[in-house]
């Protein structure tokens, strides 16, 4: 939608995006995106979520320019200072600027959410879709495996994994990913079952399509919207779990700025220096909420039944 220069003029852009007479593949894709955007922005709540998530991305991308201090530079002469003009959100017990650490912490948060998505979506889809499409004993085996993972409380499982893998943000993410793929697999299986007997899959089979083609070309477009929605809604709990692991010392290791770990570090100064826990806590709350709102909005837009 950005290449308006190649389209028939700026004024005609909207017409180009809504007209029924589609003349190129690019236009078809752009129209789909436009309809999604219009749908998403028609819900004010989803827009709030979207804006906060975009702000998060911007903060992560431009952290060096937004931060007022070096997030890692310690200054033991300026510890535990309350919020002021020089340090907008005060300083921590090592004299580091809380605002700057919060800004850099958005990178960690984004890193966690992206890594979890990249790991969980393919695993969940593959297990769910194969299970639903192939059926039979393979379905039974894969679903029982999923059940076993589902049966553990996810935080406990994540704790066990990250304890076994060793502390660190990467391992924490891996541990979280291992605990949240089962619902995604269930979802992918359910979506697959609804289209398994459809005529277009029958037609593809009659034309000789193999499993790989059916999965990639037919089932991915069917399952992807609900997986995206599910993962977006899950992001809040992922961020909270990551924060929880950080809080327990199993997530990000010092001196990396991570909101959960920051909140944990401020715990011992809760009475004297409220800003240490409050601001990271608020940031976690805000971003979790934003992902939830965005997920709700996406559900309305991407619902495959409305396509």
């Amino acid at each position: 939608m950005t290449d308006a220069s190649q389209n028939p003029g700026r004024r005609g852009l909207r017409a180009w995006l809504v007209e029924e007479d589609v003349t190129s593949h690019r236009q078809a894709v752009a129209q789909g995106a436009y309809r999604g955007l219009v749908g998403l922005t028609s819900s004010p709540i989803a827009v709030i979520g979207l804006v906060i998530v975009i702000l998060l991305v911007l903060a992560a991308a431009f952290a060096p320019w937004i931060a007022t201090h070096d997030p890692y530079r310690q200054d033991l002469s300026r510890t535990l200072l309350p919020p002021s003009a020089a340090n907008w959100m005060g300083t921590d017990d090592l004299g580091r600027d809380v605002w700057s650490r919060l800004v850099y912490g958005s990178r960690t948060t984004l890193y966690i959410t992206m890594l979890v998505t990249v790991i969980v979506a393919p695993i969940g889809f593959l297990i769910g879709a194969v299970s639903g499409y192939v059926g039979g004993w393979l379905d039974t085996v894969l679903m029982r495996l999923t059940d076993i993972f589902l049966a553990f409380p996810s935080l406990v499982l994540a704790l066990a994994f990250s304890a076994a893998l060793g502390p660190g943000i990467g391992n924490a993410v891996l541990a979280i990913a291992l605990t949240i793929w089962p619902p995604v697999a269930r979802l992918a299986r359910a979506e697959t079952l609804t289209v398994r007997g459809s005529d277009y899959l029958a037609s593809a089979r009659l034309q000789g399509a193999g499993l790989g083609r059916v999965l990639w070309w037919h089932l991915v477009p069917i399952c992807l919207p609900s997986i995206i929605v599910r993962l977006t809604l899950n992001m809040a709990s992922v961020i909270l779990t990551a924060a929880g692991l950080g809080f327990l010392g199993l997530g990000a290791q010092p001196p990396i700025a991570e909101w959960g770990a920051m909140a944990a570090a401020g715990r011992q100064y809760l009475i004297d220096a409220w800003w240490l826990t409050t601001f990271p806590g608020l940031a976690i709350l805000l971003v979790s909420l934003a992902f939830n709102l965005l997920g709700d909005g996406l559900r309305d837009v991407l619902d495959p039944r409305s396509g």
Binding site: D199, Y200, S203, W217, P221, G307
Partner: peptide, 15 residues
């Protein structure tokens, strides 16, 4: 090859 009855179900909705 087959031509199916239901014009809605015979074509992939996202292609």
């Amino acid at each position: 090859q087959i031509v199916f009855q239901d014009p809605f179900g015979a074509i992939h909705p996202k292609h």
